[in-house]
Write a protein that binds this DNA or RNA. Structure first.
Lengths: 181, 181
DNA sequence: GAAGCGCTATGACTCGTGTCATAGCGCGGT
DNA sequence: ACCGCGCTATGACACGAGTCATAGCGCTTC
């Protein structure tokens, strides 16, 4: 079971990575299998629900990792810095192809209620963590501030990808620091 | 040529609408043709470059329309209000399916340099218009402020879609008003 | 050591896509 | 009246996707 769990994890990471780069629809299961070093049959076995189940789990996994990064931060400013640093590194050493798998799902999965709910759940988790940090500083309307932070980072990733630069992300980071002070 | 130009326009609007809802990859040319009330052959005729050419033109058209909305505004605050109002209405009367075709393209078209450039061009146009408005008010670092505005609105659309609510967009609008004051 | 089973590998099938070629229509000009 | 041409309609084709069934492997357990 140990090896199996490892395969499953690898598939999910590969799926999240490829989804973040090419988008959900453009990411084929054959591609995920090859990237993860497993066969196509393994995917069917570990995810009986097919692609939808895999995509949902991948997004939840990636979302939880990011949520943990937020929670591990001492205050909002450092949380924003951590997230931006991670994405900046991912952008730079992927030739500006990497972005956020959750955002990719949110942009495409309008027809599948389960996947929509999965993306919404991740965003809600992030918002919850951020709200905790924000209201500890006494800022007014922490929910609005958290929404602004999540939205602007997600949007900045889109800008960075197409203009092949990390500038928008840095602009957003600086802007958020000022807005949340 | 008058009817032809009308068909072409209808196709582009349909393409932009469907792309904004389902994403670029998930939008089939048959679907676009049906939505626009034309046949599939017409698409091939008007867009010899195939789907890529059509998507690029659709995004540029939608982008220019939004850019005009920005330029028609007296100051940044009203520009943001106008854009947010438009997207809010689009979200509400499309059952939270509509979003931004440019953002959809930016999220998916990582492999096609031409389409990436098209999305980047639209974002750059928006930023240029916003910078004009912002620096007229003497705000420091207008480019950073414009990036924050574009990114947060694009991101807010993702949030609104998945949680089926216009709240994130309103939070972003309020936050931008404060940040740009 | 042999059976049982979780896991993996591979092929076949269906469906929908983008693309192209060809045929049909309608309205201009001469 | 005829032809020419921009535009439209329809079918065929190749290709890749997701899904499923079946066969093969490896490790645990008795």
């Amino acid at each position: 079971m140990s090896r199996a769990n490892d395969s499953r994890q690898r598939m999910l990471i590969s799926a999240a990575t490829l989804m973040a780069q090419r988008g959900v629809g453009a990411t084929g299961l054959r591609e995920v299998a090859e990237h993860a070093g497993v066969s196509r049959g393994s995917i069917s076995h570990h995810f009986p629900g097919g692609k939808a189940e895999m995509v949902g789990d991948a997004v939840r996994l990636a979302g939880s990792a990011a949520a943990a990064t937020i929670s591990d931060s001492k205050d909002v400013a450092s949380a924003i810095d951590s997230i931006c640093d991670i994405y900046r590194a991912a952008l730079e050493h992927s030739d500006f192809r990497a972005a956020c798998p959750v955002g990719a799902l949110a942009a495409e999965a309008q027809d599948d209620p389960d996947l929509t709910a999965a993306a919404a759940g991740v965003f809600e988790e992030w918002r919850g963590r951020l709200v905790e940090l924000i209201q500890a500083e006494g800022t007014a309307d922490p929910v609005a501030a958290a929404d602004l932070a999540i939205a602007s980072v997600e949007g900045a990733l889109l800008l960075c990808r197409v203009q092949r630069s990390v500038e928008p992300l840095e602009h957003v980071r600086d802007g958020l620091h000022r807005a949340l002070a």
